[in-house]
Computed example of a mutant assay.
Amino acid sequence: MATTEDTPVYLAADCGGSHCRVRLYDEDGMMLAEGRGGPANASLGLDQVMSEIFRATRAALGKLDGETIPLSRLHAGLAVAGLIEQERREEFVRIPHPFASMTAETDAFVAQLGAFAGGDGGILITGTGSCGFAVAGSEKFYIGGWGFPVSDQGSGARLGHLALRRALQAYDEILPSSPFCKAILKEVGTHPPEIARWSFSARPADYAALTRIVFTYAKKEDEVAVNLVRTIAEEINQLIRALVKRDVEEVHHIGGLAEPIQPWLDKSLGRYTAQPRGDVFDGALRLVNNRTGLINKSGKARV
């Protein structure tokens, strides 16, 4: 990549509850490299979010061939899950950073911006957490996204939490057991006291990691696993219906749960499925170029 010190380089970041992904782009929109970090939901604190962004960015920069680009040359656009609380948003615009510029919005906002190229439409994210966001004419609004455990219906964290509770109910012979229940307990702890200790420090991503077991046993037609998947599918149906009720004509469904849950969703809602024009990284680039969202104008900080 032949550049000068004045040539802009763009950083697009997708910061979620399970991981942070960063992509670097040149001024023509060509991707140069990608890096990954750990959980970077705003609910974990902006210090952790920024730390994971730096880690993922350095990983991406390390993949560039023959050129060293300092952080001070990067124009950053960040899609940050959980960046919805006003106090957190105010903190973001003040936090020191080493980039040439830094702009952010919620992951749902940025994903919608990418999927609909700035036009009308709704986005539904069901990953570790869940959130809906839509633009319908002059109206912009969120559905859910208030964080685990009070919100995040239809999410991986919600499904994992339900799975663990159900497995404990089976252990205590409150409800019937199944091979799925035994598999969940084996994953987290053999006895309830171990599971209780695990829960004291468990993050949403830890609960979401249990979803692979749920879907594995649902495919085996384990009755308990099937019922849990059906429960989560109906919660996602409710989110889609809530968007449609607000005059949203197209909904793009993304996130780690979007693909495995698809066969379980209400088929009649398929007519609202959108064909996206771009993804969250396209949205992050638009965020930078359009100067949309939260713009951090603080002084630079060395990292």
Rank of each mutant, 00 (worst) to 15 (best):
T4N: 12
E5S: 09
T7R: 10
A13C: 15
S18A: 13
V22W: 00
V22R: 00
R23D: 05
D26I: 12
E27I: 15
E27L: 15
E27T: 14
G29T: 08
G29V: 07
G29P: 06
M30S: 07
E34D: 06
G35T: 08
A40C: 13
N41L: 07
G45P: 11
L46E: 09
S51C: 08
E52C: 05
F54N: 06
R55W: 08
R55C: 06
T57M: 06
A59M: 14
L61Q: 03
L61A: 06
L61H: 02
K63W: 09
D65K: 12
T68K: 09
S72Y: 15
R73Q: 10
R73I: 07
A76T: 08
A76R: 01
G77Q: 02
L78P: 07
L78Q: 03
G82T: 00
L83C: 08
L83N: 00
L83T: 01
L83S: 01
E85M: 07
R89V: 02
V93F: 11
P96W: 14
T106V: 13
F109N: 08
V110Q: 00
A111G: 09
L113S: 07
F116K: 10
G118A: 10
D120V: 03
G121H: 04
I123F: 05
G127T: 11
S130T: 01
S138H: 09
F141V: 05
Y142K: 09
I143M: 13
W146M: 05
P149D: 08
V150Y: 12
V150I: 13
V150P: 04
Q153G: 03
G154C: 10
R158H: 12
R158K: 14
G160I: 11
G160Q: 07
H161C: 09
L162V: 05
L162D: 01
A163G: 04
L168R: 10
L168H: 09
Q169S: 11
K182S: 15
A183P: 03
K186T: 14
E187Q: 15
V188H: 01
H191N: 10
A196S: 05
R197K: 09
S201I: 09
R203D: 02
P204S: 10
D206S: 01
A209L: 14
A209R: 12
L210N: 00
T211I: 13
R212D: 03
I213A: 02
F215L: 06
K219A: 06
T231N: 04
I240M: 05
A242L: 13
L243M: 12
V244W: 10
V244G: 03
K245L: 15
D247N: 08
E250I: 04
E250Q: 11
V251L: 10
H252N: 13
H252D: 13
H252F: 12
G255L: 09
I261R: 00
L265N: 03
D266F: 13
G270T: 10
Q275S: 12
V280W: 00
F281E: 02
F281Q: 03
L287V: 03
N290E: 15
N290K: 14
R291M: 11
G293W: 00
G293V: 02
N296I: 10
S298W: 08
S298M: 09
G299K: 15
V303K: 03
